[in-house]
Amino acid sequence: MAETAAAVAYGEGVPCWVDAQLSDVEAGKRFYGGLFGWDFHEVPEAHDARGAHGRQGPSVGAFLGGEAVAGLAPKADGRLPTVWTVHFTTPDIAALVGRIRAAGGQVITPPTPVGTLGAAALATDPEGAVFALWQPGTRCGFGRRHLPGSFTWAQLYARDVNVAESFYGYVFHDALFGPGAAPDFGRAALSEVFPPEMPPHFLVHFAVTDLGEALGTVERLGGRVRALPFGASYGRVAVVTDDQGASFALLQRDWQGRTSAP
């Protein structure tokens, strides 16, 4: 069986959740439901909570096989970017915010309760890459990950990889790049995939069983292929956007015989 959220023991610095900030959540449900087979349910706890992204209004949880895999949320302001954001878990969000500031990052939105689900904050690293923090309440994070149709990797594209390693190593106590590094996170120079004018950013990866078929589905649903399939140390990757412009990646690994996440 796939992991359940209650069974996952997320250490600090592990990617525990992803959500998309969209202009049209209903359109997002059609796109991602068609691509990954997700079902959607509203999140009552978050309806009146002004969360990490400053939004208000109904958010929806995405589910696969009855397990939570992601969230879709309305943008608070139409001028804000349409993006996927990765959340890193922490048992003490206030202390982590302090380390981010001390290491040269910025806190966009301070720690904010999201109903009973937990507390969230939004920050940037010294180069401007945006990420979120999550201190669990009733929601620990993913109910399913590393399986087709769910989150499997977060790649940081940085201008200076050494700066990134220094910052995240300090902020998360080497959880990302140290000897016991989280298996769901990597970093690379922007020039490896993107043009130099692209700002530093995190790219959320979702697992698929057949990359070519998934790319065809993306285009059929109105999305676009931004980077054709290329090989990486963690699998075969393609970068796409949904029909509203949110970028993400599709990752094909060898799933033969695999029924649960590590």
Rank of each mutant, 00 (worst) to 15 (best):
I100S: 11
G115P: 01
A129D: 06
T116G: 02
R159G: 09
R99D: 11
T138D: 01
F88G: 03
V130Q: 12
V86L: 02
P81N: 13
G128C: 11
V107M: 12
I93D: 01
G105W: 11
T152A: 13
Y170C: 07
P113T: 00
A158L: 04
G149P: 14
P136Y: 00
R144Y: 09
P110R: 11
E165F: 08
Q155Y: 01
A129V: 10
W134T: 00
T152Q: 10
A132D: 05
I100V: 15
R99V: 04
F131Y: 12
N162A: 15
F177T: 09
R139N: 02
L122F: 10
G118N: 02
F88R: 05
A119K: 06
P110Q: 14
R159C: 02
H146C: 04
T112I: 12
H146K: 05
I93M: 00
L176P: 03
L147A: 05
A121S: 14
A164N: 12
V114P: 01
A103C: 06
D92I: 06
P91C: 04
T109S: 15
A164W: 13
G141R: 02
F151A: 07
A132R: 07
G169S: 09
E165S: 11
R99P: 01
G98D: 15
I108Y: 09
G118S: 03
R99K: 15
W84K: 10
L176E: 05
G169K: 09
T124D: 10
T89Y: 02
A120P: 05
D92A: 05
R159I: 03
G104D: 12
P111C: 04
L133G: 06
D160H: 05
A102T: 10
R101W: 08
T116H: 01
G104Q: 13
A121W: 10
P110T: 14
Y157P: 00
V163I: 13
G115D: 01
R99N: 07
P81Y: 14
V107Q: 13
W153S: 11
P113G: 06
A123R: 06
F172I: 05
A94K: 13
V97M: 12
G98C: 14
W84V: 08
R99I: 07
A102Q: 14
V107T: 12
H146W: 03
A103W: 06
F177S: 08
P111H: 06
T85N: 14
V97Q: 14
G149H: 13
L156H: 15
A129I: 10
F151E: 05
I108Q: 14
F172C: 04
H146N: 10
V171P: 02
I108M: 15
G115E: 01
A119Y: 05
G128A: 11
F142S: 01
